[in-house]
């Protein structure tokens, strides 16, 4: 009887675990990946695989070199790689994937102490870095059905709907239905709102995310762009083009909901969605960039600790005339 295991309660645990959650996120991203293969060809898979390998590899090497426990099995690096790829144009060269992964994993995540301690979404930091350093490569959108398999074909570049709306690029706006299913130019994972929505529904059903952030985010953008339409567009068209393009669904469903960098409380998540929505609208309408989703989310990431502090739940049994605090 001597070898009894003595540990402090509770003695049972839920079976769900972080790696399962990350696996669910990857599964939820598959429809969008399939959509991008349809539009951009096998190269979409190649870029995604590269980013995942580089991200996981960067985490592994960094942890080995610094003598820390290797945590790649938690699946967070794989998700980061996948999300980074989804934010790249399909014509991106391999070294863009490498640099983006290294920045995302090592600078944005490991420098701050690894999973859970980073305060900005690693994939978005990677993307923002790449966009600032290689703007031409990063905005070379391929039109659907024009790319090669592994070697980028000399792609027919295409202007994104938002750039056209903003008047910074020439072109005709695609139809709303084409935008919904993803038959437009854009990053690998952002084009098909339909596929992203499918993934989002899966995540909500699996209770990985709640609808709070995505719904408030998309609704806020919808309402604002409806009330204040872009020049020359009806309120409805302006709303539809705005919510169906520029990676709003990808950002709202998969990036703004990143656990680590979004508020932990229900009320905080509503504020996150609202804030992202307002910022996206402001950047798109008044800023220099046509898109704005990434920067809005990054800004709200920075505000998250503050939001958490102010939305802390009221402890059970808190009395109105607070006297003397807890005992």
């Amino acid at each position: 009887m001597e070898n009894m295991i003595v540990s402090s309660s509770p003695h049972i645990r839920d079976r769900d675990r972080t790696s399962h959650i990350m696996r669910d996120v990857c599964i939820a991203l598959v429809p969008a990946l399939i959509a991008s293969v349809i539009y951009f060809g096998g190269r979409a898979v190649y870029i995604t695989a590269l980013c995942m390998i580089f991200s996981v590899g960067a985490e592994f090497l960094w942890q080995k070199l610094t003598g820390r426990p290797v945590t790649i099995s938690d699946g967070t690096a794989a998700v980061t790689g996948m999300l980074l790829a989804f934010n790249l144009p399909v014509s991106a060269p391999w070294w863009i994937c490498l640099i983006g992964s290294v920045v995302a994993i090592i600078i944005a995540k490991q420098f701050f102490g690894g999973v859970g301690h980073n305060f900005m979404n690693p994939a978005l930091v990677g993307r923002a870095f790449l966009l600032a350093s290689w703007p031409v490569i990063m905005t070379k959108w391929s039109a659907p059905f024009t790319t090669g398999f592994i070697i980028p074909a000399d792609t027919v570049s295409s202007a994104t709907p938002l750039a056209i709306m903003k008047g910074s690029l020439e072109g005709t706006l695609p139809g709303i239905f084409d935008m919904f299913i993803g038959n437009i130019g854009g990053c690998i994972g952002e084009v098909s709102s339909l596929a992203l929505l499918l993934g989002g529904v899966y995540l909500v059903i699996r209770k990985v995310i709640s609808v709070r952030i995505p719904l408030t985010y998309i609704l806020t953008v919808a309402v604002l762009t409806f009330i204040f339409p872009s020049v020359g567009l009806s309120g409805f068209d302006s709303m539809m083009y705005n919510i169906l393009s520029g990676g709003l669904f990808l950002g709202a469903i998969f990036m703004a909901t990143d656990y680590v960098t979004s508020p932990i409380t229900a009320r905080g998540q509503l504020i996150m969605g609202l804030g992202c929505g307002i910022l996206t609208f402001v950047i798109r309408r008044f800023g220099a960039y046509p898109e704005g989703v990434s920067y809005s989310i990054l800004l709200m990431n920075v505000a998250t600790p503050l939001i958490d502090r102010f939305t802390q739940p009221k402890a059970f049994g808190t009395v109105k005339e607070k006297k003397g605090g807890a005992q």
Partner: peptide
């Protein structure tokens, strides 16, 4: 009991706490 890893801030502990703590 399994080994723990870092908190990923999923918020589950917050939503289940019957005393509404974090």
């Amino acid at each position: 009991n399994e080994a723990e890893i870092n908190c990923i801030r999923c918020g589950r502990c917050v939503s289940v706490c019957p005393m509404k703590l974090v």
